[in-house]
Nucleic acid binder design. Structure first.
Length: 650
RNA sequence: GCUAAUAUGGCUCAGCUGGUAGAGCAGCUGAUUCGUAAUCAGCAGGUCGCCGGUUCGAAUCCGGCUAUUAGCUCCA
């Protein structure tokens, strides 16, 4: 029979498999093959071919090949665990970004110390080089097999498969697992693997279900690649804002203050002040009116917004309430705000509005409070009190498109200034097919608004992923996402369209024809939550921030006390020019001061000794640059002032 | 909230199987006034996260709480 390849074709006997084809193509390909693609569909190497099939041999060079390799490693893990703990039950064991995991229900808990034992058992299984065989069963037979093995989770999975689905299993020696595949031809192909961590995970991702034990691992073609990966992960941890931010004196926490309540120290507060001024000024240029609204309100406000019903358990409430959210003592109930929207809506409602007032753009550097679950807090990324560049644009339906684009343009501008434009991805968060009751029930409005947002996004031409069941309860969102050093994704900035607030808050305006109309609302952030943005800045720059946002931009180091006066003169000039600088007045050797200034990642370190004091110069040590040079103080000041005025990213 | 782990001076860490704590750096004082990543000496600093229990005796064992970390769930 004739088998088509990417370039050319080969002739094979009837009944030949992908593995036969690989061997026919070349011996080396046969050795590196891990799976195959027949007519574009990934399958085992043992899969049989038919005349005219398009064939592609998959190796570990392909991402798909590596996934197959890791998936098999997950099965080896499962087999090893079953050998050691015969009473445990297997759940699922998929491949993830950098490895794989297997969820297992152990009768007695295991610890990370058991990894040694499990890994050596895995190694044994690999060394036997057991062939891995696929077979398929009808549903009844499949259930019978899993009942025999007492795999209750597998039984549940089979029961949930569509009636007409093919139920496949993979068998390696005495171990059989329900699996779609494909897999490596034998266990011996695995060369480098490691179990990395042990955590809990709910069965089927539902917190109402039992929590299983999840074992994470990773595998690579070569030992050297595995070591490289582990080293890179260690390296990434050094950039972790939660460690670095504390080391650099940017923020701290205190157990008497509480969880999720980071304390911004002078350096961190300075950076936030710089960012806030930058953002507020830019927003003003773009037609936003700044507001200053209260940090708390009576429960009445949240009853109108719907938060009292949908969001109450995530709010900090002042006063005792019953299960319905009513005061137990008949007193006024206040709550700290989890968002700014209803407050800014009050401003719009103050006085009759005309269509001429639209679009009405409000923005605020707002402090917000959310009672996040105790296990959720993380450094500056997930906190209970935070500062959001929160804004609302109240506009007509016709104005949405333009306003939405302006919001995105503002965020682009800010991301450029932060140097993070290339680090973000876009998520179009929709209600989609979800019928969850957490959304406002109005199919027509949802369909219209989602179609409108899709049109806008496509018109702008941004590259986004669509995510169902990720919308806000009042409308779809464009979420600007970013990953931290651990690879975990979070929302940095969000722009949302709200079709419901106009009516629910009775925000009306008088239209051209004299009729009263409900406006649309765009909820938007420009830089996101300042604390969170700072966290990502720390990780991106490993603490070596761009000049314009550095809390200390220039540090002046006199060599001896003789030049202390001169150092102070230069510092004064710099300060007058708006450059943030410090003089290290301590009686220490110059090497000592240099070391400290560099560990603090100061952009410019100026050394001034007798020579410099005499001719009015400074010796410049630029961060990240080996060579130092001497220029007149005035020249340096002019240069750094110019650099500071541009939002230069280096 | 759930699973697991961790908690020793400001920081990084020692402290074996229970006999009430040590080092380096940082800090302070003194000397040194020095030319590009740690000058020398001395001093001071901890009821071992908090509360309770077991014990003649707890940093060490047990329980509760608080905080931190990884993940799950959640994330207007």
């Amino acid at each position: 029979m004739n088998i088509l390849l990417k370039n050319g074709s080969i002739q094979l006997d009837e009944g030949a498999s992908c593995a036969d084809a690989a061997l026919k193509i070349s011996e080396s390909l046969s050795r590196s093959a891990v799976a195959a693609k027949i007519n574009g569909k990934l399958c085992d190497l043992s899969c049989g071919l038919s005349d005219g099939d398009n064939l592609e041999i998959v190796t570990l060079k392909d991402k798909e090949g590596l996934d197959v390799y890791r998936h098999t490693c997950a099965h080896v893990l499962a087999q090893a665990v079953k050998n050691i703990y015969p009473t445990c039950n297997l759940a699922i064991g998929p491949v993830i970004d950098n490895g794989f995991y297997y969820d297992i229900d152990f009768k007695t808990p295991i610890t990370q110390e058991d990894f040694v034992k499990i890994e050596s058992e895995m190694l044994k299984i690999i060394k036997t080089n057991t062939p891995i065989e696929r077979f398929e069963l009808p549903r009844a037979e499949a259930l019978k097999l899993m009942k025999k093995y007492k795999e209750k989770y597998k039984i549940e999975l089979i029961n949930d498969l569509p009636a007409d689905s093919v139920i496949s299993f993979y068998k390696q020696g005495t171990f059989t697992d329900l699996c779609r595949g494909p897999h490596l031809p034998s266990t011996g192909k695995i060369k480098a693997f490691k179990l990395t961590s042990l955590t809990g995970a709910y069965w089927r991702g539902n917190e109402k279900n039992k929590m299983l034990t999840r074992i994470y691992g990773t595998a690579f073609e070569k030992k050297s690649q595995l070591e490289e990966y582990l080293a890179a992960a260690e390296e990434a941890k050094k950039r972790d804002h939660n460690k670095l931010g504390r080391d650099l004196g940017i923020f701290m926490t205190s157990d008497v203050v509480g969880q999720g309540l980071p304390i911004l120290m002078p350096k961190g507060a300075k950076i936030l002040q710089i960012l806030t001024r930058f953002v507020e000024d830019e927003e003003a240029k773009r037609g936003f009116m700044i507001t200053k609204t209260p940090n708390m309100a009576k429960s009445d406000l949240y009853k109108i917004s719907g938060h009292w019903v949908h969001y109450r358990d995530k709010m900090f409430i002042l006063g005792e309430i019953d299960g319905q959210g009513e005061s137990l003592k008949g007193e006024e109930i206040m709550a700290l705000r989890p968002m700014t929207c209803p407050f800014q809506y009050q401003i719009f409602k103050n006085g009759l509005k005309s269509y001429r007032d639209l679009p009405c753009r409000y923005s605020e550097t707002a402090t917000e409070f959310r009672k996040e679950a105790s296990g959720e807090m993380h450094g500056l990324i997930r906190v209970r009190q935070f500062t959001l560049s929160d804004g609302h644009i109240i506009c007509t339906k016709e104005q949405i498109e333009d306003e939405f684009k302006r919001c995105l343009d503002l965020s682009y501008y800010i991301l450029d200034a932060l140097g993070m434009r290339d680090d973000v991805t876009f998520r179009f968060s929709k209600r989609g097919k979800s019928k969850s009751d957490k959304y406002i029930d109005n199919d027509e409005a949802w369909n219209n608004i989602e179609a409108m947002m899709k049109f806008i996004l496509d018109d702008i031409g941004i590259n986004y992923v669509e995510a169902d069941d990720e919308a806000a309860f009042y409308g779809p969102k464009l979420d600007i996402q970013i990953k931290n050093v651990h690879g975990k994704e979070d929302t940095l900035i969000t722009i949302q369209i709200d079709f419901a607030a106009g009516e629910s808050f009775e925000m009306q305006y008088i239209d051209v024809d004299g009729t009263k109309q409900f406006p649309y609302v765009i909820h938007r952030s420009s830089i996101g939550c300042y604390e969170r943005t700072l966290a990502f800045l720390i990780e991106k720059y490993a603490g070596a921030f761009p000049l314009w946002m550095c809390p200390v931009q220039v540090k002046i180091l006199p060599i001896t006390d003789r030049t202390l006066g001169y150092a102070k003169q230069v510092a004064e000039k710099l300060t007058l020019e708006g450059i943030r600088c410090e003089v290290d007045t301590r009686n220490e050797k110059i090497g000592y001061k240099i070391r400290e200034a560099k560990l603090e990642k100061t952009p410019y370190v100026l050394v001034v000794g007798d020579k410099e004091a005499e001719d009015g110069s400074v010796n410049v040590n630029k961060r990240g640059v080996e060579e130092k040079y001497t220029v007149s103080a005035d020249e340096f000041i002019a240069k750094v002032v110019e650099e500071n005025s541009k939002k230069i990213i280096f």
